[in-house]
Design a protein around this nucleic acid. Structure first.
Length: 611
RNA sequence: GCGCCCGUAGCUCAGCUGGAUAGAGCAUCCGCCUUCUAAGCGGACGGUCGGGAGUUCGAAUCUCCCCGGGCGCACCA
């Protein structure tokens, strides 16, 4: 007879021996107790943490630990002997069958069958969704997207925007405080040329029709004209100086350019569902720049060099690791960070220093995360070092992290462009994705009305684009292909979205179920067990995404979950099953749908009830 | 020249502090809709993890040397 457990007995699964909250992830109590057992055998703390992870293969059980072998090696102990001693101290009998020591010293944990039912019941009651809030919530500033004013957003912006948005969603889901900040490129030398173009060659009709295209045209034309005519370059410099000095006319034009650009940004972000807490562009920091330079000069951290003001190496790092040194023909020569140009203007190092200062003063973050192209890595190394020398106390409290990503290449291996060599506009890319998706929806579901098909196409098309960009490891370059970007099968958003709709459909038709009934059965089908095991890894995945700032972990988790669901769906009838199996399977559909939806939303991808 | 990143199946890519027979998608081939949506499922084919040496009980992963590719190297951001 299945034993009926009242709800309060479920807390048995939490740690009676420790003060942790009830577990939503079964590896947590196992790991805690294993650490206690290790501490009993080896009183001095291990240098690397002992970890319990999901088993790599179901034949090894449900969870495994590989850490004892490393620990034994470090201390020159016999790994199997150590494992035997640790297991003797380990009390997990309430959760697991006897722990098995395998091979050179793996520990394999096999959960008792009723452990599954209890955690599913707790989840079905809505107590959690297989993840736990961070024990120590942090405050994080995330700097991402950062497009330039007066230019179209193009494919190059998709990576920073998509990765940054996924990170802010992930950190928020885990209970951290996030300040997302869009550091617009709204200041700089390009405005001198833009002002000349605006005053001399503006086509008001074209501006009204497509402001971004017109501003882009102006910049291109003047830029080319400057190369032919140096006097035009001087004029651009003069306009820039006037702008910087606060000339009302130039200021007015500049503000109009920003306003027009913001319309474009709002449109793109609206489609992508990306929101920022702050949009503090470079210009916001103008008033601070002089002070930054003076302060660095006064503290002796910067000095004049060839008419510019620059920060040089302080010699505390070996040359190879010193961002302020570069090797030229076998000799290490200075590669300083310029904070004021010889013409008196400031460059982005100065702005970035002021920005770090402002963010720390304003929000006291534990971390500031920059989601920016890997090619700017040398800049960030200089920035972080310079800031640490400038404000050592603040730098000690705040971790500055550059989260870099690779380039998007064309199929010829060169930077991705359109056929005629232009940049691919982000808006056009999204349009094409939605259009292709509409074509597929119309083919697959001709019976749906047009409004429904358009809505599905929007969700599927945008999801496909975002997912393809988040799927590769962010640090590597990836080859862009329209077919791949917009693919609707394989490891793609539409596949995951589709499995969601299947799970949702069954959940809807199954109606309400009683979570308590889950305690009357234990899952036995391999497809059920595989699905449950994977559901329990959701929290571990979210934590890994946050820890390493790698959204691809979540993509792969969701793809695996969708696949496991699909196999379950093929092999295990739900609505026609006898109780209590029906309730178990219905709960699996419900919980899988919830995790798929929550996971996709964390990637910034929507779901739809019908596909 | 120096530094950083990369090289895994025909193609595009995963591979978490070194762990159990290296995974997936696409492509190709063979099956599966009287049973909750086939945008689905099952199976087959396919790799000396660029090459070599080393550390280790154990290496795609760590160290060194080559080969091949990309990016960066003061007044752009």
């Amino acid at each position: 007879m299945p034993r009926l457990e009242p709800p309060d007995r479920v807390s048995r699964l939490s740690l009676e021996a420790t003060a942790l909250p009830p577990s939503r992830m079964l590896h947590v109590p196992l790991e805690q107790r294993l650490r206690a057992a290790v501490a009993a055998v080896l009183p001095d703390a291990p240098s690397t943490p002992v970890q319990v992870r999901p088993a790599t293969d179901a034949k090894f059980g449900d969870y495994q630990c590989n850490s004892l072998m490393g620990l034994a090696k470090e201390r020159k102990l016999n790994p199997r002997a150590l494992a035997t001693q640790v297991v003797a101290q380990l009390d997990v009998a309430d959760l697991c069958l006897p722990v098995e020591i395998a091979g050179p010293g793996y520990l394999n944990f096999r959960l008792k069958p009723d452990a599954w039912a209890a955690i599913l019941a707790a989840t079905a009651r809505g107590e959690h969704l297989f993840f736990r809030p961070a024990a120590q919530p942090k405050t994080l500033v995330i700097d991402f997207s950062s497009p330039n004013v007066a230019k179209p957003m193009h494919v190059g912006h998709i990576r920073s925007t998509g990765i940054g948005d996924c990170l802010q969603r992930t950190f928020r889901l885990l209970g951290h405080r996030v300040i997302s900040d869009n550091h617009l490129g709204d200041w700089g030398t390009q405005f001198g040329k833009l002002l000349v173009g605006w005053k001399q060659r503006l086509d008001p009709g074209a501006l009204a029709a497509d402001p971004i295209a017109e501003m882009e045209r102006l910049y291109r034309e003047i830029n080319a004209a400057c190369e032919a005519d140096p006097s035009l370059l001087d004029l651009a410099r003069e306009e820039l100086v006037r702008l910087q000095a606060g000339d009302p006319e130039n200021l007015g034009v500049w503000k109009e350019m920003i306003r027009l650009s913001q319309v474009q940004f709002d449109s793109i972000y609206g489609r992508l569902g990306v929101q920022f807490d702050q949009t503090l562009g470079e210009s916001f920091y103008n008033p601070q720049l002089n002070g930054v330079v003076h302060d660095l000069l006064a503290r002796g951290l910067a000095r004049e060099s060839e008419g510019a003001v620059a920060v040089f190496s302080d010699g505390t790092l070996p040359p190879k690791e010193d961002p302020f040194l570069v090797n030229k023909d076998g000799e290490w020569v200075a590669d300083p960070a310029l904070i004021r140009k010889s013409d008196g203007g400031f460059n982005y190092m100065t702005t970035d220093l002021a920005t770090v200062d402002y963010r720390i003063q304003t929000w006291s973050p534990d971390e500031i995360i920059y989601v920016v192209d890997d090619r700017q890595s040398p800049h960030f190394r200089k920035l972080f070092q310079t800031f640490a020398r400038w404000q050592p106390d603040a730098a000690a409290r705040t971790q500055l992290r550059h989260i870099g990503f690779g380039k998007i290449l064309g199929e010829d291996g060169r930077p991705f462009r359109t056929r005629d060599g232009g940049t691919v506009k982000l808006g056009d890319l999204l349009d094409e994705a939605v259009e292709r998706a509409l074509h597929v929806v119309t083919e697959k579901r001709p019976e749906l009305d047009e409004a429904s098909r358009r809505e599905i196409a929007r969700v599927v098309g945008l999801g496909a684009v975002k997912y393809q960009d988040l799927l590769p490891n962010r640090q590597s370059d990836y080859v862009f292909s329209w077919d791949k970007m917009l693919a609707l099968s394989g490891n793609t958003a539409p596949y995951v979205q589709y499995q969601f709709t299947r799970a949702q459909k069954v959940t809807r038709e199954g109606g309400a179920y009683d979570p308590a009934r889950l305690l009357q059965t234990t899952p036995t089908e391999p497809a059920e067990l595989a699905l449950i095991r994977h559901l329990l890894n959701f929290g571990l995945t979210l934590e890994a995404v946050a820890e390493e700032c790698r959204p691809n972990y979540l993509c792969n988790y969701l793809y695996d979950l969708a696949g496991l669901y699909s196999r379950f769906y093929e092999h295990c009838p739900v609505l026609k099953a006898e109780e209590p199996v029906r309730t178990l399977r219905l709960a699996l559909c419900d919980l899988t749908a919830q995790v798929l939806q929550k996971g996709l939303n964390t990637l910034g991808i929507e779901t739809t009830e019908v596909m």
